[in-house]
Write a protein that binds this DNA or RNA. Structure first.
Lengths: 193, 193
DNA sequence: CGCGGGTTTGATGATGCTCAAGCCCGGTGG
DNA sequence: CCACCGGGCTTGAGCATCATCAAACCCGCG
């Protein structure tokens, strides 16, 4: 366990042997089977999770009953509802395993302590969040300027590994289009000209 | 000068008198007149800016020639293209003053030094970026699930102060709709029923 | 007074949605 | 082993929303 996590952290900041040992204690291993939930909307998000293995998604359901996928997280990624985790407010999101998964969880108390005891983690987290922000801004401006087909092509180019592991209607939801539209796009991409 | 900045920092982390003095040296005051640019797309983003006074926007122009506004920044906010600032790659964004503005700039070298000399700033920046991420995710999922009219109403509710200082076609661009559509929405909101 | 940018208005058209039906395929129970 | 069921994907027809293009309007400014 923990190997993937520490490898990831070390790509961003240096860790001493001692620090690594200290960190280890803050995280709780957890297995989730396909279709199990890490967070149900309406509950407070008690954990931030690092995915050692598997695949999860976070999503929200709007007033019209439509699902919108906020994020996919596969191995070597983090997932949580940061807003709920930090404020203690109930979450508008749900987080669900799409495959059998192995996670490392950290709760709010451990999170705060970790930042005091290993302040380097401030830097690590800042870099992580910064990268998420850049990616989310990109996704937003793609959504504003490109057609559904262009967005789908870009997604294939960027995240083919995700597409192959996720049912098609969830890809549609991630792109903000209906399953029908995605199906038609794919059909029309298969027979160009 | 600097007062707004330090007040802002102190809402997130405590600063000693000494730290405040050290920080002061990293920032370069800069005035920008309306319509002047802090960053032109194609150039590398050399500075991250804190807005002491005034109003700026960052935007990008897509292949079809349409502007898309990424962010407005008024007093007490930060603005930059973090991706370009951090990587040194040329930026796809431009940053322009919409009013005469007073900024505090920090360049990449000073930024790195600042984080070493005053490590508390890691925490401050992490919190800032986290909040931006949460806001951007919200904006994205609004764009995915709501109609143009609903998005406009939400914007009024959340940022009336910005709307009143910005020309209407830029609001449209921020919402990802055309100026014509926004005009029609406003007309129809004025005479309900 | 006339120019010019920003906003409004109108007509038309494209993109993507809704609703409904059919299809494919894997899983389950008889 | 097969028949049936159900979920997910596809297909089709009609429709809503929003974009495009073009013209008119409004108003501040030289």
């Amino acid at each position: 366990m923990h190997e993937v996590l520490f490898k990831n952290i070390k790509t961003k900041v240096d860790l001493t042997e001692a620090e690594e040992q200290q960190l280890r204690n803050f995280f709780i291993p957890k297995r989730l089977r396909k279709k199990q939930y890490l967070l149900q909307d309406g509950d407070v998000c008690l954990y931030t999770a690092f995915v050692e293995k598997g695949l999860l998604r976070s999503y929200t359901i709007d007033e019209k009953g439509n699902e919108h996928i906020i994020q996919f997280a596969l191995e070597d990624w983090w997932i949580s509802d940061m807003f709920s985790f930090l404020t203690g407010e109930p979450s508008a999101y749900s987080i669900e395993a799409l495959e059998d998964s192995e996670l490392l969880l950290i709760n709010r108390k451990a999170y705060d302590e970790m930042l005091i005891i290993v302040p380097k983690m401030e830097r690590y987290l800042r870099i992580l969040v910064q990268n998420s922000l850049i990616a989310t801004q990109r996704r937003l401006s793609s959504k504003l300027s490109l057609s559904a087909e262009e967005n789908y092509k870009n997604l294939i180019a960027a995240c083919n590994n995700i597409i192959q592991r996720v049912p098609q209607h969830m890809i549609a939801s991630f792109l903000g289009i209906t399953p029908e539209t995605l199906s038609r796009i794919r059909k029309q991409m298969a027979t160009p000209k």
